[in-house]
Design a protein around this nucleic acid. Structure first.
Lengths: 136, 136
DNA sequence: GTTTATGCAAATTCTTTGCAATACT
DNA sequence: AGTATTGCAAAGAATTTGCATAAAC
């Protein structure tokens, strides 16, 4: 079973309140979160700086990844905990222009893209924008 | 022929030095530019604030569009000046992780994506990251 | 002449850094 | 006990706002 503690331990990170709470947020809400979202939800339980540092640590340890967004704010989402070995970052995300939420569309796979000669592909991110089921 | 002046006039914007210079940058370099890039290149010719406001105006008038980037900096590129009518924003961009440049791959078209029920697609952006021809 | 854009100053917001105190293993 | 994490203060970037001056039409 996937819990904040098991995620932290498997990534060789110490179990602290702040880290557990932040992972909880990602597990609960199945949407991408920005620093400000976490600050709001955890309402002053932790210092703003601690949240910044926690996100950076998670990013370094490949526990979360950045989610593209055109709003200017950097958003993050949990990396899939299954494929620890092949660290494929092929993501399809959907951003609703009404509620602003970004959801990860795990079910959809990215089609192959043929790049011009000389270009080497390492990672692909597809962001679809429109209106989500809830706001429809 | 596409000139800064013609672009400005067709978008019902006044022709000013700052606007002309910024459009020149976009036409010259065929890569996405951030505010800081423009500030550097135009080296103190215009106030930092004026560049911010110019970018916002261009964005509002659909003269430029945001280009997705995971670095945190907001990047922009000219909208294609041909299809003024069908304002399709289907973009494929390539970001080199060595030089950091983002190029618009006009030649590549985006494959169709089938969204789950209830989702309405309006815009799609594909960002491919890797190593570009120059840095190869 | 009227309207819009610019420059400057200053206010906000966002993010990072240093260091002592605290919590984790 | 030893190492990593947190909170606080403060510094540094990035972005926005107000207002008087200057430029465009």
């Amino acid at each position: 079973m996937v819990t904040p503690d098991s995620i932290l331990l498997s990534h060789k990170l110490r179990v602290t309140d702040c880290r557990v709470d932040i992972i909880h947020q990602f597990l609960d809400k199945q949407v991408a979160l920005a620093h400000a979202d976490l600050e709001d939800t955890l309402n002053n339980k932790f210092d703003r700086v601690t949240i910044y540092r926690t996100l950076k640590t998670f990013l370094d340890k490949d526990l979360i990844h950045k989610v593209l967004d055109d709003s200017g704010a950097t958003k993050y989402a949990l990396c899939s905990q299954d494929d620890h070995h092949d660290h494929s970052h092929e993501h399809v995300h959907f951003k609703c222009e009404i509620c602003g939420e970004t959801t990860c569309l795990e079910s959809i796979s990215l089609p192959a893209i043929k790049l011009p000669t000389g270009f080497l592909k390492k990672e692909m991110n597809l962001l679809v924008q429109g209106i989500c089921e809830k706001c429809h």
